[in-house]
Design a binder for these strands. Structure first.
Lengths: 141, 141
DNA sequence: CTTCGTTTGCCCACTTTTCCCCACGTTTTA
DNA sequence: TAAAACGTGGGGAAAAGTGGGCAAACGAAG
């Protein structure tokens, strides 16, 4: 079972290259999809997971989902890591995730996310355990 | 799977020539279709996608869709990029999209769009993230 | 019919960006 | 302890985008 888990801390170099964890590359294969989320972070999908995700969006008529398509597709790329396992993060995606030198790559089950270290740590700090506890109770977990 | 994604910033030169991203030219082939949208922008289709799109319009009876046909077909052309991968944007289409020197070409899945940089950035700024979030929630994304 | 001026298409050249490869130091594995 | 793998940095070659020039084609005016 392919599962993205653990978090990794890497750095963006002067050429905006970011290493992808070797463990994730094994899952992802030769190429994979990087896109943006509504939150200030990026998402990494396998082609397979991306297909499921994007098919739902493409199936919608433009009249209701043009904005969504405009939000997602222009910020989506097929990433080909170089021989060292790095991908180039384009400027616009870097801006969206507010990335500087220090980035965190986290696995969240069916995909992975790229966060700026600062934003990620802030998010961890603000986490409301009480509401999570309540959510799990409602879900019967 | 042919997918238009990413955004590119190019400039219209003094001869109204606009470069088409090399990635898109690979998808589009030798020639392709440029038309206008209701929004102040232009659309680029492969012949295949254009066929699907225009067939739907042509199938409509004139009694309900004459205005739509008048809007679209006179402003549609078969574009042949020059040896450097540029196409000439006719004056009327340039006016429709309010293009000046700086243009943005965005991929939105099944086709691409040409925007003036100013209009595109305004649109990006005005985007209603809350409604996008709601739409994605409904889709289960 | 000729001439002039504009437009159109093709080609060349420059600049920037992107891509690919090699090398170093640290960490993990056998 | 040696070897392999991994993350990081940088240089050189190739490609892509941009601008300008030249000649053929076209249309208007003389």
């Amino acid at each position: 079972m392919e599962l993205f888990c653990r978090e990794y801390r890497y750095s963006l170099d002067a050429k905006n290259r970011l290493a992808i964890p070797a463990k994730y590359r094994e899952i992802l294969g030769e190429t994979f999809i990087i896109t943006r989320k509504l939150d200030p972070c990026l998402a990494i999908y396998t082609h397979e997971e991306w297909q499921k995700y994007s098919d739902k969006i493409k199936a919608l008529p433009d009249s209701v989902a043009m904005e969504l398509k405009e939000f997602i597709f222009p910020k989506t790329l097929v990433a080909e890591p170089d021989s060292q396992g790095r991908v180039i993060i384009p400027g616009d995606l870097k801006d969206h995730a507010q990335l500087d030198k220090n980035a965190v790559i986290i696995g969240v089950g069916d995909h992975a996310q790229i966060w700026s270290e600062a934003l990620w740590e802030e998010r961890e700090k603000k986490r409301d355990l009480a509401s999570l506890r309540e959510l799990m109770r409602q879900l019967g977990l």
